[in-house]
Write a protein that binds this DNA or RNA. Structure first.
Length: 742
DNA sequence: AAGATAGTCGTTTTT
DNA sequence: CGACTATCTT
């Protein structure tokens, strides 16, 4: 029967984890130990052997992407439609809950999700109203405070402000923000969790319902759960549910947003009768890479203890390259990728990982210069683009007139004569009436409180939105989108931008239309409720509302052109869970990685080290670490020491790729071309000591004349790269190629 | 009210 | 360095 298929190819601990009958299970799974596989197989096994309904399983993943993968795996394993299963992130599951119980949760049915950027804009406005000096009270600080509070499960009234003016002030802003959110029917990320948890606590009947339903609760990336998430799952689990959590304390890299590794220990205490299984065999990396990872992470204290091993061969040493500056670093990386390709490998097998997004620019430029396609993960996501956010704001208003964040964004985009002056009047009225901006604006029109010109402009705007709503009511989602971007004037507005911007903006807007089409084709109003779940909502959600939710919640990891073979660029954080044959870790400098800010707060350095551990363990075959001796950052030149993490690696695993000092500097930094004596000595010693200068003209018997553009290694392995006048550029081993200086 | 220009500011990671 | 604001001009 199919059960054996689920258990084939599993090693002993994996097998145990998949088939464990303990009520609770904690799987400590090292990097590359087949964690996701175990989770998927366990779910499949539970369904297959214990005859429980897929319906009674709830699985929580860290990202939407992982959730999709999980569904895919289960569908492959069992040929089963996973639509009825609750698989998703804490946020998306909470959201689903709130959509269903909006009334009991005290929400408007039209509630919309407020993402980070809108949240910040919102807070800016609130701070202005409260007349807080922005230099004294940076808005971002309030944003962090609010989000951290929510992650910790704290609402304004839960915070004791005794004796701290600062705290009192922050709570005041928090409170004002909450009020504003309620008025606009807006729910931020933290609120999704907070509210759904509160719903359960306040409505035991609803909680009971879900506790009856879910017999198995599984959690991936458990080390990254925060306080409210842990409380959430503990509440849901109740006493009879079976709970499986999978995690790796060494890969906890999100404490800055409230993740608590301690939850792992907490789990053992709270969920008695639990079994603990360790997955330590790694199927991903060479022995060298694993030794490096183990060697590094040893420097952390208070680990649960876990040591990866492999049956794989030792593999290539870890290369370390010291770039002269960040340009040189990038150039080196691109060159290595070129070599990798020349050896018959795919570009897409190579990944460049870095600590912060700002580093990607130089790398991109180098890749563009050598016309290598690349793909950036994270970074600016589709739904984050200005023009897309504008379009979505219109759509949000059509969906929910009270969405203050949306009004603020587009009330005067394209410019339609509603300036700050008018806007201030609206805000003022909204504040005194305690109403939304939309209502306030309507009131102003009715009472004709504005000068004629502004009055007409505002009236026109209100009519425009209402007219859009009416006109699109019966439209398909993609028609609606197309209608809105045209009638709003966004297309015209963005096409007026100068440079190439206009073109891409329009392309993106059109892309949004096709995204809407795709979304509509995979979405049906019944999907969430009717057939698959026991309760049907009276009124199904509209496709528009569903798309807006998705845009906020899953800001588009589904990148378009995966077809082209391209180099992968991403931050170390977004690399978690992925693997690549060839991995570069760039910018390993003190101050950059570990990051400056991590050196002050305690505990942060260890997290940086774990981040480095995550980076190392992404590599399957070859790991190349680079740093720059000088780096231009924020327009300032800085000299950084190599990262301490480099010296924490077992030195015997490392091979330093240092260029000879005479050739390692870029041409512009070199003194003028060598004098005749030098040249003579170079010619005589060419075979033994490769002291070729970059920029040196040479002749090759077969390829003709060219210029030395790069060099590396020494002795018999010394090689130079020559840009030939007619044959392109080639790497030549000096001891073989008979190069003549000219 | 809109657009242009100058001047200031902060610089991590993201569901 | 570049994003964002405040201020100036039209």
């Amino acid at each position: 029967m199919a059960v054996s298929r689920l258990l084939n190819d599993l090693n002993d601990p994996q097998h145990q984890a998949v088939t464990s009958l303990s009520q609770h299970l904690l799987v400590l799974a090292g990097a590359g130990s087949g964690k996701t596989r175990v989770l998927a197989h366990r779910i499949a096994w539970l369904i297959e052997t214990t005859q429980i309904s897929p319906w009674s399983i709830i699985a929580v993943t860290f990202t939407n992407k992982t959730a999709r993968e999980m569904r895919g795996r289960i569908e492959t394993l069992l040929h089963l439609d996973t639509q009825s299963m609750w698989i998703g992130t804490f946020h998306s599951l909470s959201h689903r809950l709130l959509r269903r119980h909006w009334q009991e949760a005290g929400l408007s049915q039209q509630f919309q999700i407020l993402d980070n950027e809108d949240q910040l804009g919102f807070l800016k406005r609130i701070c202005k109203q409260l007349q807080l000096d922005e230099n004294l009270w940076p808005v971002r600080q309030f944003q962090n405070f609010i989000n951290n509070s929510k992650d910790a499960g704290l609402q304004p009234q839960d915070i004791d402000v005794q004796g701290s003016d600062q705290l009192a002030n922050q709570v005041q802003v928090y409170q004002a923000y909450q009020t504003a959110c309620e008025r606009g029917a807006l729910v931020d990320f933290g609120e999704l969790l907070l509210r759904s948890h509160k719903l359960w606590l306040q409505r035991p009947d609803i909680l009971q319902h879900y506790q009856n339903r879910f017999q198995h609760l599984l959690v991936d990336e458990f080390q990254d759960t925060n306080t409210i998430q842990y409380a959430w799952l503990r509440t849901l689990a109740g006493s009879s549910c079976s709970v499986t959590v999978v995690g790796d304390d060494d890969q906890s890299i999100y404490s800055w947003r409230g993740a608590r590794i301690e939850n792992i220990q907490q789990f053992s205490q709270d969920f008695k009768h639990g079994e603990i299984i360790r997955l330590e065999q790694n199927y991903r990396s060479t022995e060298t890479i694993l030794k490096a990872a183990n060697g590094l992470i040893k420097h952390n204290n208070g680990r649960l203890g876990k040591s990866l091993w492999t049956e794989d061969q030792s593999g290539e040493p870890i290369s370390i390259y010291a770039g002269f500056n960040e340009q040189d670093e990038a150039r080196f990386i691109v060159e290595q990728i070129h070599r990798w390709e020349s050896a018959g490998n795919l570009r897409s097998e190579a990944a460049i990982l870095y600590r912060s997004n700002a580093q990607s620019r130089v790398l991109e430029e180098a890749l563009i210069r050598s016309s290598k396609p690349y793909r950036i993960y994270g970074g600016q996501r589709f739904y984050d683009r200005l023009e897309i956010r504008n379009a979505l704001a219109y759509m949000r208003l059509v969906n929910n007139r009270y969405d203050d964040a949306a009004i603020e964004r587009i009330i005067n985009i394209p410019t339609r004569g509603i300036g700050v002056r008018t806007l201030d009047v609206i805000r003022q009225n909204a504040r005194t009436e305690g109403s939304s901006l939309w209502q306030a604006a309507q009131g102003i029109i009715i009472s004709s409180a504005l000068p004629a010109r502004a009055h007409n402009a505002l009236h026109g705007f209100l009519n425009l939105i209402e007219q859009m709503a009416t006109a699109t009511a019966q439209m398909q989602l993609d028609e609606l989108t197309d209608y809105i971007i045209r009638v709003s004037g966004l297309i015209k507005h963005h096409s007026k931008e100068k440079g190439e911007k206009a073109q891409t903006r329009i392309e993106n807007l059109n892309e949004l239309v096709s995204a809407a089409k795709t979304f509509a084709s995979t979405w049906s109003p019944a999907q969430l409720n009717r057939q698959l779940d026991e309760e049907a909502d009276e009124r199904p959600e509209t496709a528009l509302a569903a798309m807006l939710d998705q845009a906020a919640l899953d800001s588009g990891e589904q990148q378009a052109d995966e077809s082209e073979d391209s180099v992968q660029l991403m931050t170390l954080h977004s690399a978690k869970g992925l693997e690549f044959p060839l991995v570069f870790m760039a910018g390993l400098e003190e101050g950059l990685f570990p990051h400056q800010l991590s050196l002050v707060a305690d505990g942060r350095l260890e997290e940086e080290r774990r981040l480095c551990y995550v980076g190392i363990t992404r590599a399957m075959q070859k790991l190349i670490i680079t740093y720059a001796e000088a780096r231009r950052l924020h327009g300032q030149d800085t000299m950084n020491r190599p990262s301490r993490f480099i010296s924490e690696l077992p030195q015997e695993l490392i091979e330093e790729v240092r260029l000879k000092s005479s050739v390692r500097r870029p041409l512009s930094y070199r003194p003028a071309v060598s004098n005749p004596t030098d040249r003579r000595s170079q010619r005589t010693n060419l075979m033994e000591t490769p002291v070729l200068a970059l920029g040196q003209s040479v002749r090759h018997a077969m390829f003709g004349e060219g210029t030395v553009i790069d060099a590396e290694g020494s002795g018999p392995r010394a090689r130079v790269q020559v840009q030939f006048d007619s044959q392109g550029s080639k790497w030549l081993v000096l001891s073989h190629a008979k190069l003549e200086l000219i």
